[in-house]
Nucleic acid binder design. Structure first.
Length: 209
DNA sequence: AAGTTTATCAACCGCGATACG
DNA sequence: CCGTATCGCGGTTGATAAACT
């Protein structure tokens, strides 16, 4: 038996939201708050599935959203975070107040990818394109396939990204916050615009294999 | 001016994770 | 512990605007 559909497709609207639908959704959430997306459409009088309502609210209607162009600082921050976390858009978005994962993902795919390529950096690996091409050639020559280097230095971040099997003894990490500008847990620089919490580091250590 | 191509971004889909009975 | 329901994430699609021929 397969998964049941998230909603009754025959009786739900799809595609672009109308002004009236937006207003209904906003009004409902203002009164009842977020949550229980499954039952929200019926309660709000919307012919939409809960998933669609959630997406519309999170990506477009939330009052704390910062609309408009990304700043140079945001650009660089996204690049750095992507270097650390990969396509973990929700984690990246969590470090950019007012920006959504969907917005960042779109921005990455349409702007930043091209920007990095024009700098000669591979957007997927954050390594110089030339270096990758050379490595590939080297491996083909040696008959090696399918194994990336186990660790490397990200030149921009000056952080070591280690890819290794989970260790038997869990790494104990202090609950510290690292500044992205100076990389210190005892940041004294002015910016401290990115507090890289150990939660993010934990995530990286546990999942970025 | 009309047709075509490209860029942008809102929205959808499928699936894994988690909660719950 | 197991099966089901729901949530949330990431990849992808499609509509539309803008740029180009």
């Amino acid at each position: 038996m397969g998964r049941s559909p998230c909603c009754e497709k025959a009786h739900t609207n799809k595609g672009a939201w109308t002004k009236e639908e937006d207003e209904r959704l906003i009004a409902h959430i203002k009164v009842h708050g977020e949550g229980c997306w499954r039952s929200l459409p019926k309660a709000a009088g919307l012919l939409r599935c809960g998933k669609s309502c959630r997406l519309r609210w999170i990506n477009y209607l939330r009052p704390d959203l910062k609309r408009g162009n990304f700043t140079q600082e945001e650009d660089e921050l996204i690049i750095k975070l992507h270097g650390l976390l990969g396509n973990k858009w929700s984690l990246i978005a969590a470090r950019l107040p007012g920006r959504t994962d969907n917005e960042i993902k779109n921005y990455w795919n349409t702007h930043i990818k091209r920007k990095l390529l024009s700098r000669g950096i591979d957007p997927a690996t954050h390594r110089p394109v030339m270096e990758l091409a050379e490595k590939k050639e080297e491996k083909v020559g040696n008959g090696e396939v399918g194994h990336e280097a186990s660790s490397w230095q990200c030149p921009d971040l000056n952080l070591e990204l280690c890819i290794s099997p989970p260790s038997q003894e869990p790494v104990k990490m202090e609950k510290t916050t690292l500044c992205f500008s100076c990389g210190s847990s005892e940041c004294k620089c002015d910016t401290n615009f990115l507090g890289l919490s150990s939660g993010v580091l934990d995530y990286r250590n546990e999942h970025m294999k």
